[in-house]
Design a protein around this nucleic acid. Structure first.
Length: 352
DNA sequence: AACGCGGGGGT
DNA sequence: ACCCCAGCGTT
């Protein structure tokens, strides 16, 4: 298969003229640690959201070894609110591997980078191309969307087949002298022009080459499978204070919101069911509702009711802890807890 | 291949 | 109400 690639110089020229000014693009040449952290933060996360987290992260953990020396709780605290918390745990784990196995020097081969926890095909390609100049495509949602439109590919872009077809084309056309710029140019184009719903084809540097534009198919491409509907849970949480301390629960080390702190929280199919479970675990629930909230995850919805609770005579297990209100700011809180406490404990510092 | 895993912004 | 975002790991 031959691939017409006259669009590549047009893309690179457009990138040279209009590339976005982002915190992780400040250094030249790019530092692999900086590229790595930014790419992990950007997984499934918008650029605007990442900016502030990235700046705070680099101030706290300026190098791989600084990150390796931090505690997991510090790392999670900086990640609080960003979501997909295994990303933070894997960054931390990988930093320790890099220190132990590579003397703190970021590895520069595809095999070694790809083997680090939290780094898949996309992130490996991004780091190798941007930090080391290797001709490896970074196949993310932007690249898949842009290429599907450019070449009129109607396979599901998230299927293995779709990714394989597009990845092969990208590997063929990626310029050996500017692989990192090529990947970033496609991301900028995907983020600002070739956007998901209604692309801004009028200002696209590739419109003369784009199958979807020329055939008026931009509304049909790319093809993606629909996601399944979330499960709805009724949730009872308890707000229990004792002498300036608040009863919190540390979530398990795996699963949803792993290792984050929350108000004691109990899920059920019905409100009554979740409240019964709260009673069984911690004793009396007072009738007073102090806060309600609908928290939407990707695949679950929590219909939450927070009650005032009485002080239990005993705690079920060591994951329940009385936390002094002055130290709440040092704990990584999960989203629902952070929102509830911001509303119910005005004036208490929740961020370090 | 399907699923779990967050949170927020856009339409 | 959806949709999607600079995806990865597990099953």
């Amino acid at each position: 298969m031959t691939v017409e690639n006259e669009w590549v110089p047009a893309l690179l020229h457009w990138f040279d003229e209009t590339k976005r000014d982002l915190p992780w693009r400040a250094n030249h040449p790019r530092d692999p640690y900086h590229v790595w952290v930014s790419e992990i933060m950007l997984q499934q996360t918008r650029t605007e959201t990442v900016k502030d987290y990235y700046v705070r992260w680099m101030a706290a953990f300026p190098t791989v070894s600084a990150l390796a020396q931090a505690s997991e709780e510090e790392v999670l605290k900086l990640w609080q609110g960003l979501g997909y918390y295994s990303r933070a745990r894997n960054l931390h784990k990988a930093a320790r591997e890099i220190v132990l196995q590579y003397h703190g020097i970021f590895p520069d081969t595809l095999e070694a980078v790809r083997a680090l926890p939290g780094i898949g095909d996309y992130t490996a390609g991004a780091i190798l191309s941007m930090a080391f100049g290797h001709a490896v495509p970074a196949v993310d949602g932007n690249l898949l969307r842009v290429m599907a439109r450019l070449f009129g590919i109607s396979d599901d872009i998230l299927s293995l087949k779709g990714k394989r077809i597009i990845g092969r084309i990208a590997q063929t056309v990626i310029p050996q002298d500017r692989p990192g710029d090529f990947n970033e140019a496609l991301m900028d184009l995907g983020a600002t022009i070739c956007i998901p719903h209604v692309p801004r084809c009028g200002s696209c540097p590739l419109k003369d080459f784009c199958t979807a534009f020329l055939e008026n198919r931009t509304s049909e491409l790319p093809v993606r499978k629909k996601k399944k509907a979330p499960t709805i849970y009724e949730v009872t949480s308890l707000f229990i204070r004792k002498q300036g301390a608040l009863l919190l629960h540390k979530r398990p080390e795996t699963g949803l919101l792993a290792s984050l702190w929350e108000l004691p929280t109990f899920l059920g199919k019905t409100e009554k069911e979740s409240r019964k479970e709260a009673e069984r675990m911690l004793g009396t629930v007072e009738g007073k509702i102090i806060w309600t909230h609908r928290h939407v995850f990707t695949h679950q919805i929590w219909q939450m009711t927070v009650y005032l609770g009485t002080i239990p005579c005993s705690l079920p297990d060591p994951s329940y802890v009385w936390v002094d209100e002055g130290t709440l700011g040092t704990l990584p809180l999960c989203g629902p807890a952070e929102k509830c406490l911001a509303a119910c404990l005005p004036g208490v510092i929740l961020t370090r």
